[in-house]
C-alpha cells in the first residue's frame, strides 16, 4: 500500500482572504489527499512547526496581501534550518510575474496565480510524487 499524501494549506501573514485556500483544501480532499488547514495569520515559524508535527509532504502557502516576497522565503529557510526541506513548498495568490522567478529560485516549487484550475495543482502534485518513486 502506498502512503497517503498529506498537505498543509497555510495562510501566512495578516491577509484574511481565505476563499482560495479553503477551496483548494476542499478540492484536494475530494482528490484523495489529507489536508491540514491552519487558518489565518500564521507566522512562518508556526507554519513550519505545524508541517513538521503533521509530517506533511507539501506546504501550500496562500497569500493575497503582497507580503509573499518576505514570507515565502522565510518558510523555505526555516524548513532548511529544521532539516525538513524535503517538504515541497508551493504558493498561490496575487503574485506578479516578476516575483515568481525569484521565489522559484529561492526554492518555491510552483506558484499558482488567480484563475488557475485545480487540475493544474493536482497534476503538479502527481508529477512530483511520480518523481519521488
Amino acid at each position: 500500500m502506498t502512503d497517503i499524501v498529506r498537505i498543509l494549506i497555510a495562510k501566512p501573514g495578516l491577509d484574511g482572504h481565505d476563499r482560495g485556500a479553503k477551496y483548494i483544501a476542499r478540492a484536494l480532499k475530494e482528490n484523495g489527499y489529507e489536508v491540514i488547514y491552519t487558518g489565518l495569520r500564521q507566522t512562518p515559524e508556526s507554519i513550519v512547526k505545524t508541517a513538521i508535527q503533521e509530517d506533511v509532504n507539501y506546504i501550500g502557502l496562500s497569500l493575497l496581501s503582497g507580503a509573499h516576497n518576505e514570507l515565502f522565503p522565510q518558510v523555505i529557510d526555516l524548513l532548511k534550518k529544521n532539516e525538513a526541506d524535503d517538504i515541497v513548498v508551493f504558493g498561490g495568490g496575487v503574485i506578479p510575474e516578476d516575483d515568481i522567478a525569484s521565489l522559484m529560485e529561492k526554492g518555491v516549487k510552483a506558484i499558482f496565480t488567480p484563475g488557475t484550475s485545480i487540475k493544474e495543482v493536482i497534476s503538479f502534485i502527481e508529477n512530483n510524487e511520480k518523481k519521488n518513486k
Binding site: 501573514g13 495578516l14 491577509d15 495569520r41 507566522t43 496581501s65 503582497g66 507580503a67 518576505e70 514570507l71
Partner: peptide, 11 residues
Amino acid sequence: DSMSIGEVGKV
C-alpha cells in the same frame, strides 16, 4: 511589530 513583517503599506 514582528507580525507586520512584509505587510507594511501593502494593501
